[in-house]
């Protein structure tokens, strides 16, 4: 029983890091510009497929591919911001929700036409780690480490570089930041790009150990909502913690009830946290 619990929990926690990485992208965008990116799932899926193509078409090692995915993810976000988000940034919430959803439809539509919806997987294994009762595929462990590295990278960027500080200033008070000479449009675009970069990277990591289709991003999008609310919308580090909580839940809940109850628990918790502490479990304000 105990060893079963340990292995289930460690499985969940390791995945939790990757969930957290995906959610961080959503959280960053929300925190800076109060936009919920409904194209988040498809961007995750794009990360998966880009890795897939680089692996099979260009013969690139998946971990090298992830670097390319990150760059493309950033670029995609910049373009998407300019095309779909900038015009509605000050409009009521419904507008940005629908414009990002439109991008979702476009990606899924083209993706379905190009890749169909039959599952793909990247045939790539680098062994497993055995620690007593715990067995973890190394691909997942690397993904968890990657998530931590990306978090460190994000925080160093936000706190140590000029553009990062500008992002924080804009998130805090866009008008005041503009008065101080910060080009807010460029900063918003950059934040959006960083958000999609994180999402695409998470997709790339996931593709190294789970099969996927163009629709596979959607469950992660839903999980990201839950995680962001648990960790506090707009707090990237909270997202990582929220991811661990969610991963832990997914590891623990199946021990006590059928696995199909996991989403019931997750989403009930989600609504409950929204109602009781809309700033998240660790939210400051």
């Amino acid at each position: 029983m105990f060893s079963h619990l340990l292995s289930s929990l460690s499985d969940g926690l390791v995945l939790g890091f990757v969930y957290g990485l995906a959610a961080m992208g959503l959280s960053l965008i929300w925190g800076v510009m109060a936009v919920i990116n409904l194209a988040h799932g498809p961007v995750i899926a794009l990360g998966m497929f880009t890795t897939y193509l680089l692996f099979y078409q260009a013969g690139l090692n998946p971990y090298l591919a992830i670097v390319v995915v990150a760059a493309l993810g950033l670029l995609f976000g910049l373009v998407m911001y300019g095309a779909a988000v900038h015009r509605v940034i000050d409009a009521p919430h419904l507008s940005s929700l629908l414009s990002t959803f439109a991008v979702n439809m476009i990606i899924i539509g083209i993706g379905t036409a190009v890749f169909t919806t039959s599952p793909r997987n990247i045939d790539f294994a680098i062994g497993t780690l055995n620690l007593g009762p715990i067995t973890i595929p190394l691909t997942r462990l690397v993904a968890a480490l990657g998530a931590v590295l990306m978090t460190v990278f994000l925080y160093s960027f936000l706190y140590l570089t000029r553009p990062g500080k500008a992002i924080r200033a804009v998130a805090n008070n866009r008008e005041a930041a503009e008065l101080m000479g910060i080009p807010s449009s460029a900063i918003l675009a950059l934040s959006f790009g960083l958000g999609t970069m994180l999402a695409a990277t998470a997709g790339a990591f996931i593709s190294t150990f789970f099969p996927f289709t163009i629709l596979s991003g959607f469950p992660y999008e839903l999980k990201s909502f839950v995680i962001c609310v648990l960790g506090g919308l707009g707090h990237p580090l909270g997202a990582l913690v929220g991811g661990l909580i969610l991963g832990g839940l997914e590891g623990l809940v199946p021990i006590f009830m059928p696995v199909s109850w996991v989403p019931v628990v997750e989403f009930s918790l989600f609504v409950l946290v929204l109602l009781v502490r809309p700033t998240g479990l660790f939210g400051a304000k």
């Binding site: 199909s260 989403p263 989403f267 009930s268 609504v271 929204l274 809309p278």
Partner: peptide, 23 residues
């Protein structure tokens, strides 16, 4: 809840209901 928080909660309610009915 107001604005986007309300929108998110309604997504959560739908998914919770779906998962519940499935069980």
């Amino acid at each position: 809840l107001r604005g986007a928080y309300f929108a998110l909660a309604t997504i959560g309610i739908n998914e919770a209901a779906r998962a519940f009915v499935t069980n």
